[in-house]
């Protein structure tokens, strides 16, 4: 379970995130939706202890993420390509990630092979460095690295962005499987309303750092979101 309380974050005196209380129960697939600059990535960065909050606390399974680091052992995440190691090959990167989570090379290989379809026939290669892959393929590498540790908490920031249609559908299928397995707490942000409503049990809409709507999964979820964003067109 992830609990956020009285969380505030400002950049150069401008408040970009203000969450009084938000609880994400265990095994819930939680979606975050909002326009650019709404505070989605900031929230994920705070949850991952990449930036310091001005005030408030975030606990992951009762562990304060800013004070302890045990939560890293069960958290898999991917935000953007800056978090990849550009001079490694994908294989080397997966092995390194596996090592950080005490996985053997064999285990890593087996688990990566499970996602072979996601790569849509693209050869991972043993000599091509991550920096030489396209943005979409870099994202796939990052997502697979987050998944291969079989995390208890999975955090993905705009996972569908830059992916080709086949990969988008493949990823959606993977995330739906995780959702139905009910073993992972997922936090996903996306601008793609169709995909996110397909893989999330609950969606919170944020605007200028404030939560506007908290929508449970039902038949009207997508419509409500479209209604909210449509007048802006």
């Amino acid at each position: 379970m992830i609990r956020i309380e009285h969380l505030c974050k400002s950049y150069t005196n401008k408040e970009v995130l203000h969450l009084d209380s938000l609880t994400i129960p265990e095994h819930q697939s939680f979606g975050l939706v909002g326009n650019n600059g709404a505070g989605k990535t900031t929230l994920f960065r705070l949850v991952l202890d990449l930036i310091k909050a001005d005030s408030g606390t975030i606990t992951s399974f009762e562990i304060d993420v800013a004070k302890q680091e045990d939560w890293k052992q069960y958290t898999g995440s991917y935000l953007d390509e800056n978090f990849l190691i550009p001079f490694l090959t994908p294989d080397e990167y997966f092995l390194f990630v596996g090592k950080a989570y005490n996985l053997s090379a064999e285990e890593v290989k087996t688990r990566v092979n499970e996602y072979k379809e996601f790569f849509n026939g693209e050869d991972l290669g043993e000599t091509k460095y991550i920096r030489d892959y396209s943005l979409g393929n870099k994202r796939k590498i990052g997502i697979i690295a987050a998944l291969l540790i079989q995390p208890k908490v999975l955090i993905l920031d705009e996972p569908f962005a830059n992916l080709d249609p086949s990969s988008q559908l493949s990823l959606r299928h993977i995330l739906q499987q995780i959702q139905s397995a009910r073993t992972t707490t997922m936090l996903i942000s996306s601008h793609d309303l169709v995909h996110i409503t397909n893989v999330c049990d609950r969606i919170v809409l944020i605007e200028s750092g404030l939560p506007i709507k908290d929508l449970p999964q039902n038949d009207t979820m997508l419509r409500e979101l479209e209604m909210y964003f449509a007048p802006r067109l």
Partner: peptide, 13 residues
């Protein structure tokens, strides 16, 4: 060095 890339992984600060 390559700090950012390590920060999402299970590597103590």
């Amino acid at each position: 060095g390559i700090i950012t890339q390590y920060r999402l992984l299970n590597i103590p600060k």
